[in-house]
Amino acid sequence: MYAALWRVLPGPWWVRLLILLVAAAAIVWALFVYVFPLVGLWLTPADVVIG
């Protein structure tokens, strides 16, 4: 899968690497900002309320 992705990308190896790094950073950012906060609501009920 990742090997196929590497072959599909254009340019010399450093361009491909750059594209992949940028894409990875964007994915991680989206996970941190959008996905994980939603998942966290369901996963661990860290309750702080009394009563």
Binding site: M1, Y2, L31, F32, F36, V39, G40
Partner: peptide, 27 residues
Amino acid sequence: VAGELLLTAGVIVLLFVAWQLWISDII
């Protein structure tokens, strides 16, 4: 492909743990 997907899922879970413990608080 299945192996790569599993590896990816593992990385995402580790990212989630890091987010839960530290990064969420920082953001």
